[in-house]
């Protein structure tokens, strides 16, 4: 499963990541960070759908998202 790591203190809550996620697994959370922004999050129940495509991270103006991609063993060996 690929995954994102979202640095909530860098996030400004712009939600541009949420509109480009092809799996629609990003959303606004109910949490505020120290700057007072309501931060984005990856919905935990949908997290495993992440493909590691990096669209969210590319769109993020604040470098709040790091993307880890997992390549399945059989894909990797192809």
């Amino acid at each position: 499963m690929s995954r994102i790591v979202l640095d909530e203190e860098r996030c400004k809550g712009c939600l541009l990541c949420t509109v480009v996620c092809p799996k629609n697994i990003l959303r606004q959370s109910s949490r505020m960070n120290a700057q007072g922004y309501k931060v984005a999050e990856c919905a935990p129940e949908l997290a495993e759908e992440c493909t590691g495509c990096t669209a969210c991270a590319q769109m993020c103006p604040d470098l709040a998202i790091v993307v880890w991609r997992t390549v399945k063993a059989k894909e990797a060996s192809r």
Binding site: S2, T54, A57, L63, V67, W68, T70
Partner: peptide, 10 residues
């Protein structure tokens, strides 16, 4: 399975 960094700060 192996995990690689697909996007991070340059």
């Amino acid at each position: 399975m192996s995990e690689t960094l697909a996007f991070t700060r340059t």
